[in-house]
Design a protein around this nucleic acid. Structure first.
Lengths: 346, 346
DNA sequence: AAGTAGCACTCGAAGTGATAGAGTGCTAAT
DNA sequence: ATTAGCACTCTATCACTTCGAGTGCTACTT
């Protein structure tokens, strides 16, 4: 069947264009492709195919007498059906392990190490979200007197993560009462997810009266302490510098938009939260992206799981022209590593 | 005395040049200065003075037929003896308070808020170092069993800051023994600075034998837990984006160096540590700076104190051409605010 | 019919004067 | 001592040209 032939030739040529452009950042002409594909096709033939690809919206010319550049749609087809998955080298894998592990047992350092590792391997910015603790499960709470009016509440989750918060009542307070509050919480909340706890206690509060009401209120105050309940998710972002070395950022005006995104973080948060809900790698290419400011950028995200539950996400952010194969491999591998490291920690 | 007159005229003109250049980022010519100084001096006169200033190394011409630009030495003279201190407006002060305070009681958020506030007010990058805890004083330690082999050590300092670390012994461990260790530490270390504790215990260890040796060893292990002893100082840096809007960074090549500095942080750490030791505002202008990569930048640092002890530093980093008056006022004010907020927290 | 060679054509990048204007330094006049 | 005037220098800018990469089309080959 001729049809099959011509189709697969098109695919080959598209792949060659994308890869060449990724490598050189220069619009790629028919001659280059003709040499790159050893198939012995002449530039003229390539040109004919290029016209087709352009009509299909997969590539475009920046101006009449220039080579072709992939469109977002072109990258999309490349990522979805042309790119054969690559594996990281042993060296790269061990570098990742080293960067994530050296950070010791500190949760934040690990996450930061992960984002740094992504950036080091791929040369684009690495981003990592700290585990979203609302999904983790209450294990127990401890209340420690510091002085006459201040207490320290320490919350331990089933995954072994620990949060603490100072409770400054302002007034003198009987330690014994707080001990009873803690005991109560430990009995009631065991096995509940942190996200549900506040709702649960609020509901119970409606049913109670009088002395127990006050008691329960105090318990809620403790659980609601900002540092315990507002699980301040952090977003670590590393590798700006090396990403900015890419020629697409040589005039600051474009770079600024991306810089702002990575500094303000809010939009990025939302996007990662969303992607965290589903399994595996997601690729957002250029204008597919909802965030306006980075429509010349691509974003590759992946959730990570601890004990089978997806509790966070990592990402790589860079210009649309990035090494998708390598970046995807890195992000995927990192997701696994991060899951394992966090499980061991828990 | 004519001498005084001519000297003060020079100073006035230098100040005018510096201020005009700071405002416009354009080499400033004699005509501009003549208009700016209402003194009714003609451009020609200004020019004569400019020649003097240039001979003194305070200003320079980028090229023959351009206006003058301050040299590092020019900025230095301006900062040291021409700049009259300005006060922030009420609005600016209250904005600072808001940004530092809204962050709740979380230490890191406060420090981060401080660096953000600096950047928002001054339009250059704001940097803030978390308090250096080695100087803070041991108050007490608490050891909480989590499960059969894991314990949580919680350390409270006299300033009310709390650190915790997980102790994973690997083996079953009697809670009662750890309780005795904690009791021992609380008696021995009360009032000691965290920096001295390890040395002290190590010295005691040399004198002890047998069963008490093992006991003491266990205590040292606990105190040496990374999260307790390695007071991982963080460096927060905010406001890259708005700083990058300055024309000096319009070609990325120069911006990259600064970006790297702010991302790698190590050099900046050292510099801030050093400046933390002395009191008040320090201004590092251009090539005065030891760090090579930012010799086109200025750095304004200030220590901050809690209960009279200098425990951290904040800074503003931007192009040499920055509004020194405003930036210095901001940094100084922020240093006070930060001290007060942290005292209240402690 | 599919592929290819050849060729005219297009368009941007890079180079070349020419011009305008901002700013200077110097000199002579006040 | 100050300043007006003027010649001079240098850059930024614009129009113009040239060069070359790359194309699309047509005619030729297999």
């Amino acid at each position: 069947m001729k049809q099959v032939d011509i189709e697969s030739r098109r695919r080959g040529i598209l792949a060659a264009i994308v890869e060449s452009y990724i490598g050189t950042a220069t619009p790629v002409g028919s001659r280059v492709i003709s040499q790159r594909l050893r198939g012995g096709l002449s530039p003229a033939t390539i040109r004919n195919v290029m016209v087709d690809l352009e009509e299909m919206g997969l590539i475009m010319q920046p101006h009449t007498s220039a080579g072709r550049v992939p469109t977002d749609k072109g990258y999309r087809t490349y990522v979805d059906s042309l790119l054969e998955p690559i594996r990281l080298t042993k060296d790269e894998e061990s570098l990742i392990l080293k960067l994530v592990d050296q950070s010791g047992q500190d949760l934040d350092s690990i996450i930061q190490g992960a984002s740094r590792a992504i950036s080091v391997i791929t040369n684009v910015a690495g981003v990592a979200l700290t585990p979203r603790l609302k999904k983790s499960v209450f294990e127990h709470i401890e209340i420690i007197p510091i002085d006459s009016s201040r207490f320290l509440a320490v919350l331990v989750t089933s995954s072994g993560l620990v949060k603490n918060a100072m409770l400054d009542s302002g007034e003198e307070m009987a330690g014994s009462e707080l001990a009873r509050v803690a005991e109560f919480l430990n009995q009631e909340l065991n096995g509940m997810s942190l996200g549900d706890i506040k709702h649960y206690l609020a509901r119970r509060l409606l049913q109670e009266r009088d002395s127990f009401y006050a008691f329960l209120k105090k318990a809620i105050d403790i659980v609601s302490l900002p540092n315990l309940s507002r699980m301040e998710d952090h977003l670590y972002c590393e590798g700006l510098t090396c990403m900015m070395a890419n020629p697409e950022f040589k005039d600051m005006s474009k770079a600024r938009l991306l810089l702002r995104l990575l500094e303000e973080k809010k939009d990025l948060f939302n996007l990662l939260y969303e992607d965290m809900e589903s399994e595996g790698i997601k690729v957002h290419i250029g204008r597919e992206n909802a965030i306006k400011d980075i429509q010349d950028c691509s974003l590759i995200t992946c959730n990570y799981k601890v004990n089978g539950v997806s509790i966070g996400a990592i990402a790589a952010v860079g210009p649309t022209r990035m090494e998708y194969g390598k970046v995807m491999a890195t992000v995927r591998y990192m997701s696994e590593v991060l899951g394992k490291v966090l499980e061991r920690l828990g």
